[in-house]
Amino acid sequence: MTPQAAEDQGHSRQQLLQVERLKTYYPVRSGVFGNARKHIRAVDDVTLTLHEGETLGLVGESGCGKSTMGRTIMRLEHPSAGRILFENEDITQYSQRQLKPLRTRMQMIFQDPYASLNPRIRIFDALAEPLIVHKLAERSEVQREVNALLHLVGLPHSAGARYPHEFSGGQRQRIGIARAILFRPKLIVCDEPVSALDVSIQAQILNLLQDLQAELKLTYLFISHGIGAVKQISTRIAVMYLGRIVELARTEQLFRQPKHPYTELLLNAYPPPDPTLRSRKKMMLHGDVPSSADPPRGCRFHPRCPYVQERCRQEEPLLTEGEHAAACHYPLA
């Protein structure tokens, strides 16, 4: 199913995930007694909704808080404030014991699959153990189930007898995907799953994720700083800057007519597939992301914005409502 087709169906589907005013702060300690004088506002008052069967892309520069957002939704990080509702179940304050059964319904694909694989055990054992522990298959059926998983992600059955270091980066990511779909979860958070791969391998992994989504009826939160990958796979895209969502729209609409200057500059940095489309010199993104421990007053993007006005320096804009939302006092036409 294409992102556009999923989008057309998404409006009639139920909400799978709802994030309400989510905050994840980390204390910056100093002094003899280690008092927290400031906080790094990694995720700062974010509200999002994800429908069954869609892919929501979350894009932004490194340090904008998108990976922390994904980890907080998965409850690998503890939220400082706000709510996380999964299938209408408030999981915000769940203990580790309460989260354990939830892990079969929510899974994560990491940027570096090698770091999440035990280098001392074979791939077969890495996939078989969860099946046995969670009683998803009888011991006599484990071999068949693991072989079916490997086949789903495009790996031969013989891969099960090998160790993580014997695979290429793309193959290891396929193993990471196999482990994520093992429980047939409802939601998968993909945290930069292709950023460490060659471009040709990136396309293969993105195609695999789309095929699995259609076959297994998966829902993705796809996190990346590469807007090209996000464009290929996403139904909708949320643009994140310094801990906050600054624009949210359908993929086609966001690429055709961005409303926030930050989104426009991100798109300008994305090379078009047809070089003849480069008809004029475009404004590019300059400067570094300010510290999330001390964000600028007013609009957080104003120190880097080419369209900045006095109001932007004094008053922080709110994210508008509607199908194409933007947090900008003077949205682009």
Rank of each mutant, 00 (worst) to 15 (best):
L242K: 10
R250C: 05
C299I: 01
G298P: 11
V230L: 01
S224W: 05
A269D: 06
P306A: 09
N268M: 08
D288Q: 12
P258V: 00
M284W: 00
A249F: 00
L265C: 05
L248K: 01
T251M: 06
T219F: 03
H302E: 13
G243P: 08
D211G: 06
A238C: 06
Y241R: 05
M240V: 04
D211N: 15
P272I: 02
G226D: 15
L266V: 00
A269I: 01
P273W: 03
R236Y: 02
Q257R: 05
I245A: 07
H286K: 13
P275E: 10
S292W: 04
A203I: 00
L212Q: 02
M284V: 13
Q253N: 03
L248P: 11
E215P: 01
H260C: 07
Y220E: 04
R297L: 13
Y262M: 06
K231S: 10
Q204K: 10
P303N: 03
P275G: 10
K217A: 14
R280C: 09
N268A: 12
E252H: 08
A269P: 09
P295E: 09
L212P: 14
I223R: 08
L266A: 06
I233P: 02
A214H: 13
L209P: 13
L242E: 11
I237Y: 02
L206A: 12
E264L: 08
S292F: 07
D211F: 00
S292E: 07
L285T: 04
I205L: 12
L248Y: 08
Y270P: 01
T276P: 11
Y270L: 15
Q202V: 02
S224P: 10
P258F: 02
E215K: 09
L242Q: 09
C299H: 06
V246I: 09
A269S: 14
M283I: 05
M284D: 03
T235V: 11
S291H: 12
Y220K: 03
P290R: 08
V289K: 05
Y307G: 04
L209V: 09
P273E: 05
N268K: 00
L206S: 12
D274S: 12
A203Y: 07
Q213T: 03
F222V: 03
I227Q: 10
Y307P: 01
R244F: 04
P273S: 07
P272D: 07
S279K: 13
P272A: 07
P258S: 08
G243K: 09
T219S: 14
D288V: 00
